[in-house]
């Protein structure tokens, strides 16, 4: 589903964020991306959603080389990727309904279909009753769940999340991760960047670790021994 081949990224300022990163995430897989602050997690996700381009190397989604995607096609690529951000990126002056409906409006769905899908997406994240609220009226966890509803409302085959549990308490974080698990059960590939190791440790998922832009471990989180998890400190 996602394949990196010897990808390096150097920012215009000279900061090398990724060095020769290679990995492959299979369709239908759920995986975590971890690493210390500044390790290059966000950069890696941005290369998948084409918010940044690699300096060297190739990124593939479903076998398509993203280097060959023209600027004008980027919008259509993003319609296949549900993205979730730490700062949920909601439109503050629009209602929850309008926020979740945005991808559908952009894709030109009919009013009827839009309403149906928005209701279904909000049902999944348990926020049916907040449909007419504005984002400022929501708690952090609720706003995050609205962001998730927006990411899945057009049923993308791939979900990317950058610190989705960033400033949520452990219980709420777990709820969010359970949501991702549900989508994964439904066949969606899920890739989550986080530095909440405690969260990952409790689950049996593949986890990729970055250290100063290099991929240092790639394996099941269960298999970690204590020396490896001490390879970096947060």
């Amino acid at each position: 589903m996602i394949k990196f081949e010897q990808v390096s990224k150097t920012y215009p300022g000279g900061q090398q964020a990724l060095r020769k990163v290679s990995f492959h995430i299979e369709p239908g897989e759920m995986a975590f991306l971890t690493g210390h602050s500044g390790a290059g997690k966000s950069t890696l996700l941005k290369l998948i959603s084409i918010m940044e381009r690699p300096t060297v190397g190739q990124v593939f989604i479903n076998g398509h080389n993203l280097n060959k995607i023209h600027r004008r096609q980027i919008a259509f690529i993003r319609r296949d990727i549900g993205m979730i951000f730490q700062s949920h990126q909601l439109l503050m002056e629009k209602t929850v309904f309008d926020n979740v409906a945005l991808p559908l409006v952009i894709e030109g769905y009919s009013r009827k279909e839009t309403t149906k899908r928005v209701h279904a997406a909000l049902e999944m994240v348990g926020l049916r009753d907040k449909i007419r609220s504005l984002p400022i009226m929501l708690s952090g966890g609720e706003a995050q769940r609205v962001g998730i509803a927006r990411a899945v409302v057009n049923k993308p085959p791939l979900l990317l999340a950058d610190e989705p549990t960033g400033n949520l308490d452990p219980k709420l974080s777990m709820e969010i991760i359970r949501l991702f698990e549900d989508f994964n059960q439904a066949g969606v590939s899920v890739f989550i960047a986080t530095h909440d190791l405690g969260l990952i440790a409790r689950m049996k998922y593949r986890s990729l670790t970055l250290k100063q832009g290099q991929m240092i471990t790639d394996g099941l989180s269960e298999d970690w021994d204590s020396s490896e998890s001490k390879a970096y400190d947060f």
Partner: peptide
């Protein structure tokens, strides 16, 4: 600006 950013993130074309 913020609204345009979000729209681009969820796949709006420039024309839209």
């Amino acid at each position: 600006r913020d609204e345009i950013l979000v729209m681009k993130l969820v796949g709006a074309t420039d024309a839209f």
